[in-house]
Amino acid sequence: MPSSQEVLLVTGSYDHEIRFWEAWSGICSRTLPHPGESGQVNRIAISPDKRFLAVAIHKKVHIFDIASPLTTPIMLFEGHTHNVTSVSFHSEGKWLVTGSEDGTIRIWDLRTNSLHRTYDNGAPVNDVCIHPNQGELISCDQAGSIKQWDLSENTCTFELAPGGDVPIRSVSVSSDGFCLVAGNHRGKCYVWKINDEGSQLPRFQAVTKFQAHDRYLTRVLISPDIKYLATCSADTTIKIWSISPNYTFKLDKVLRGHQRWVWDAAFSADSAYLVTASSDHVARLWEMASGETVRQYNGHHKAAVCCALHDGAGY
C-alpha cells in the first residue's frame, strides 16, 4: 500500500462521525461531524478520482468534497423513504447508485445533481454493486433475491433466488466480471460464473455453495486480484477464502481480534491489506499474508459500521 499521503481511509459510525485516517500511523486526520438531522451512517464510498466522499445517512446521501476543508456536503440526494443501505460510484464518477430498505434502487447524476432513474425492486434492498462493464447492476434483497439490472434496457433482466426467501445480505462481483458471490442471512455463500451475453451457456451458471459462518453474515468481498474472498460476520471474525481458477473456495485463514460484529470490509488496490469496521468501535488494518492486525484505528464512540479505502491512483 502507498504512503499515507496517497491513501484515503474513511470510517463511519453510529456516533454520527465520519473519520479520515492516516493509514500507517493510525492517527485520525479529519472528522466530519454528523450533518444535523437524526439518522445513522450506513455506508460510505470514495469516488474513483478521490474527489468525492458519498455518505449514506438514514434516508439521504451526502456528497462531500474531499479536498475541501468544509464540513458541509456539496450535494444532497433526497428521495429514498427508508434507510439507504448501499452506495457505489460509476467508474468514471458520472453517477452514483444507491439501494434502500424502501425497495428501490436509484441512480443519481453527479453532473446535474439530480435523480436520473429509479428501479422498483419490490423488496428491501440490502446491497447493490456495479458490474465492471458499467452497464449492469447486481442487487440483493430481504426477500432472498439477486437481480441483474440492465442500464441500457432500464429493466431487471435476470433473477436468482438460491436460498428461497432467506435474505441475501451482500453481493460482490470480481474485477474481471466473471464471478459473482452472494452471502445470506444464515452465513451461507453462493457462487456463480457470469458468462458472456453471447454465450450458449446461461448468463449466471451456479458453481458452488458453502457455509462461511454459523452466524449472521454481513459482507462478502472479492479481492481486486480475484485470489481471495473476505466474509464478515456477527461471530466477530473475518474469514479469508482462497479462490481457485475454477472458482472453488477453500478457507485460507480466520482474522481474529474484533470483539463484536464485523460490519464492513475494504481491500487495498494490491489485495495485500484489508480494512474492517466493527461494533467494538474499532477499525483494523490487516496484512493478508500474515493474517495479523498491523494497525488499529481508535476514536469512534459507538459501532463502526462502514469503511472505505482508496489507495490506487485516481483516474
Rank of each mutant, 00 (worst) to 15 (best):
T112H: 00
L115G: 01
T118V: 09
D120E: 11
G122W: 03
V125G: 09
V125D: 03
N126K: 05
N126Y: 07
D127K: 07
D127N: 14
D127H: 10
V128R: 12
H131G: 09
H131P: 06
P132F: 06
P132W: 02
N133T: 03
N133I: 04
N133H: 02
G135S: 04
G135V: 00
E136Q: 13
E136N: 12
A143S: 15
G144R: 14
G144Y: 13
S145H: 12
I146S: 07
K147C: 15
W149E: 13
W149A: 14
N154Q: 12
N154F: 02
F158T: 12
E159V: 08
P162F: 04
P162I: 01
G163W: 02
G163P: 01
D165E: 13
D165K: 08
P167R: 04
R169C: 15
S170V: 06
V171S: 14
S172F: 07
V173F: 05
S174E: 10
D176Q: 10
F178Y: 13
F178E: 11
F178H: 11
C179D: 02
L180I: 09
A182H: 03
G183W: 15
N184W: 04
N184P: 03
K188R: 13
C189K: 07
Y190A: 10
K193G: 02
G198T: 15
G198L: 05
G198V: 13
S199I: 00
S199Y: 05
P202A: 05
R203S: 12
F204C: 11
T208A: 10
K209P: 00
F210R: 08
Q211K: 02
L217H: 05
T218S: 07
R219F: 10
L221T: 15
S223I: 00
